[in-house]
C-alpha cells in the first residue's frame, strides 16, 4: 500500500542561511494491505513530513515513494482517509456541508452519501449538531468532524495523524474502539501518535523515527524483547534485584532450590526511549 525506499527530504534554507534542513534521511518502510503501522517519534522526527509525502502535498528530494503502487497523486485520495494533525476547516461551513463536500468529491453515489453521513455523524456523536457552524465546535468536536470526513467515503487506507488530539478520555476510548473495529474490517492504517499506550494497542508494526532517520521497524513485541532483562524470582514470588554479581552469586547458592529465572520484557515506553537514545549515540 505504502512503500518508502531510501527517501530523503530537504527543506530549503531560510533567507540568509546557506544550509538546507534535512527533514528525512534514507527513510525506508512499507505498509502492507490490511496492516496497521504506528509511526512514533519525538517532535521534529519527520512523521508529518512522511505523511505529507504520502499524500502528495510535497515532493521528496531523493529515493522513491509509492502509494497503491504508484507515485502519490490526488486521484489516489479516493481510497485514502486522511486525518491531519491540525484540524482546519473553512469555519463558516456546517458540519453536514463539510461531509457532503467530502462525499461529492469522491463521486459517491447519491443514495449512499446521506446514509454514510448519517452513520458516521451518529457514530461520532455529531448527529445532533450537524447543522451547527464548524466555528462553534469545540476542539474535540472538530476532531470528530475531521474523523468523519476521513471515513465517510469508506477508504481502504487510513492515515491518522494524532487522532486522539483534543479528545476527552471517553472520546479517546471511543476512537480507540473505532480504530480497532476498522482494523478488524481489514483497513490499512498508518497511525501517528505521542500516546504510546494507544499505539501499542492499535498497531501490528511500529516505526520509530528520530531526527529524520528510522531507528526501528518491527512489531511491538520485537521492540520490547530486543533488550530483555533476566530477573530472579524467589519462593516468596518477589522479584529480587542485586547490586553486584557477588551478591547474586551468594543469594543463588543459599536459595538454589527455590528460585527461578524469568525473562523480563521492557515496557513499550522504555523500549522506545532506549531505541531513540541508542540512535542518538550512534
Amino acid at each position: 500500500m505504502i512503500q518508502f525506499n531510501d527517501v530523503d527530504k530537504e527543506y530549503p534554507s531560510e533567507l540568509g542561511e546557506n544550509n538546507v534542513f534535512p527533514a528525512l534521511s534514507q527513510v525506508s518502510f512499507q505498509l502492507e494491505e490490511g496492516q496497521s503501522l504506528g509511526m512514533i517519534g519525538s517532535n521534529g522526527a519527520g512523521k508529518s513530513t512522511c505523511i505529507r509525502l504520502m499524500m502528495g502535498f510535497m515532493k521528496h528530494s531523493a529515493g522513491s515513494v509509492a502509494v497503491f503502487g504508484s507515485s502519490p497523486h490526488s486521484s489516489q485520495h479516493r481510497n485514502i482517509g486522511y486525518l491531519p494533525e491540525v484540524t482546519a476547516f473553512p469555519q463558516n461551513l456546517k458540519c453536514i456541508e463539510l461531509l457532503r463536500f467530502a462525499a461529492k468529491t469522491c463521486a459517491m453515489p447519491k443514495k449512499e452519501v446521506e446514509a454514510s453521513i448519517e452513520y458516521w455523524l451518529t457514530r461520532l456523536g455529531l448527529w445532533d449538531v450537524r447543522f451547527r457552524l464548524l466555528r462553534n465546535f469545540s476542539k474535540g468536536m472538530q476532531q470528530r468532524a475531521s474523523f468523519a470526513m476521513a471515513l465517510v467515503h469508506d477508504p481502504k487506507l487510513l492515515i491518522l495523524d494524532e487522532p486522539m488530539s483534543g479528545l476527552d478520555p471517553v472520546g479517546r476510548m471511543e476512537i480507540v474502539a473505532l480504530i480497532q473495529e476498522l482494523r478488524e474490517k481489514g483497513k490499512s492504517i498508518l497511525f501517528c501518535s505521542h500516546v504510546l499506550d494507544d499505539v501499542e494497542k492499535l498497531v501490528d508494526q511500529v516505526l520509530i523515527l528520530h531526527q529524520g532517520k528510522v531507528c526501528f521497524q518491527g512489531s511491538v513485541s520485537e521492540l520490547c524483547q530486543s533488550q530483555a532483562d533476566w530477573l530472579v524470582v524467589g519462593q516468596d514470588l518477589q522479584q529480587h534485584r542485586f547490586s553486584s554479581r557477588e551478591e547474586l552469586s551468594v543469594y543463588m547458592q543459599e536459595n538454589a532450590d527455590n528460585i527461578k529465572l524469568v525473562k523480563h520484557h521492557e515496557d513499550f515506553e522504555s523500549a522506545f526511549l532506549r531505541t531513540v537514545k541508542e540512535s542518538v549515540a550512534i
Binding site: 499524500m55 502535498f57 490526488s74 486522511y82 491531519p84 491540525v86 482546519a88 476547516f89
Partner: peptide, 18 residues
C-alpha cells in the same frame, strides 16, 4: 490564509487536483 492555517490540506486530502 488557507495555506497558512493548513485548511488547504483538508481540501487537497480529497481527490482534487491542485
Amino acid at each position: 490564509l488557507s495555506e497558512e492555517r493548513k485548511s488547504i490540506y483538508m481540501i487537497l486530502s480529497r481527490p482534487i487536483s491542485r
